[in-house]
Design a protein around this nucleic acid. Structure first.
Lengths: 255, 255
DNA sequence: AAATCCTTTTGGTCTGACCAATATTATTGA
DNA sequence: TCAATAATATTGGTCAGACCAAAAGGATTT
């Protein structure tokens, strides 16, 4: 059964990881099931127990299994879907990301209103125009949108804030769900987005912290609404319920 | 050096992963650098080579290092950073970090007030007591303080927020200046800190978002003041000027 | 100075053993 | 009979020492 000498990698444990992933994908071990004992796997694959162990740790770090002493290695989720090269493997939902942005970017905008240099404002203005113009290319819009928001973070003149907000966008890039939903949600709403961006820029130029915070808040709230709407389209009934709960969540928070 | 017997996880290799991630974050090994040999790490951490090996494989799966036979384990990217050019989180000043925390943790506290579970609140309460008790050991207080703030982030029930705030503390750990200053600034002010923590906890229990935000804001403002004072002691004249400017900075922002 | 050989270092793997946590089975007591 | 308990088996966690192969570094030769 175990084809041992097909694609020889540098290290044996990598072969094992590949084989085990395949067995997991095959449905041989459903979620929650227990994998064979380490000693048994070692015998079956013709390797030593330390090697099996390394493979299991790799799978565990990837979130596929969970090993419990005395109990064994249990399947946590099947490989497949959200693959990507997400080294971190954070399963952050699109809603969580948007909520985090709502909180943090609003505050960052307020601070930026007091700290932005003229160069910062010019750069932000340039990006607003670019988005207004490039509304054709979806990929380009996505990139320009990120640049717009990151530019505001940079305008706080605070490296920690800049770093953290950039990280939120990295997480988003690593979450296919979030990116897809946003793209879909935005596709029909480019003009409002441009208007909202302009409102944020305006507040920054007026050096109005509260205005910038409010404008950013309004913008991201709108984004969340679009996102929730897109979600609803896909999962009609249940999603509607969940979305309502989520709306209440941040509504209650900002009340 | 690294104390090995502090926070015992289930498995030794996880302790090692944590220690090594911290050393990576500290900038001790820049990107491309070679980590010590497995045998050397084993001796240094008082574990066996297979255990070191498991930790290295975990780091490799996470994309942080790359191990090559005969050559060694090389740093591929620093922990925390998503990728791109965000590899530089080093020249983040203590003030910038504190300012970021003031903005973000205050908002997180407000959200946590609406989302925290009873378990979250119990955990936070436990940490408040622990800090009040352990005011002798400086290292323990530092760790407990981090746990307190991170627990609040976790109580938002939002993985993105939790991730980002934890990252801020990682940056702080990587900035010796910030950690030292904070330790010094706090050493004389443990009692007020405990009171402020209690106030935050109280607001969370009352499910009072605005109260929690205000309490956290007051706490971190106090921290910044202590930090600026400690800074002033070192750089008497110029620092005084700069500190005044910084005070005005966030005073204007929160006005 | 360049190419080659040799020694050292370093990771890759194995064997076999012991311990601790968990699960399983057998035993006991009501 | 059945639940609580004790004994046993299974399983992961770790260690020690050993051997091999790849890579690196230095010495030697051309």
């Amino acid at each position: 059964m175990s084809n041992s000498a097909d694609k020889g990698q540098d290290r044996l444990y990598q072969d094992l990881v590949r084989d085990l992933r395949q067995e997991l994908a095959s449905g041989l071990y459903p979620v929650g099931a227990r994998l064979p004992a380490e000693r048994e796997l070692a015998a079956r694959f013709g390797v030593s127990r330390p090697t099996v162990r390394e493979a299991l740790i790799a799978l565990e770090v990837q979130g596929l299994i969970e090993v419990r002493v005395g109990s064994g290695a249990h399947v946590r989720k099947l490989p497949g879907a959200g693959e990507g090269s997400a080294a971190e493997g954070f399963n952050v939902s699109g809603f969580e990301l948007s909520e985090a942005r709502l909180l943090f970017e609003s505050e960052a905008a307020a601070l930026a209103a007091t700290q932005a240099t003229e160069e910062d404002l010019a750069e932000i203005a340039r990006l607003v125009e670019e988005i207004a113009r490039e509304n054709a290319d979806p990929d380009g819009t996505e990139r320009a949108d990120r640049q717009f928001h990151v530019a505001i973070a940079r305008a706080t003149r605070n490296a920690a804030i800049y770093d953290v907000i950039e990280r939120l966008w990295d997480l988003r890039a690593a979450s296919p769900e979030a990116a897809l939903l946003h793209a879909k949600a935005r596709s029909a709403n480019i003009k409002p987005v441009v208007v909202e961006h302009a409102a944020i820029l305006d507040a920054l130029r007026r050096r109005d912290p509260d205005g910038a915070r409010a404008a950013m808040r309004a913008h991201l709230t709108q984004v969340i609404d679009s996102l929730l709407f897109a979600t609803e389209e896909r999962q009609i009934a249940e999603a509607r319920k969940a979305a309502q709960a989520k709306r209440e969540r941040y509504a209650r928070f900002s009340a």
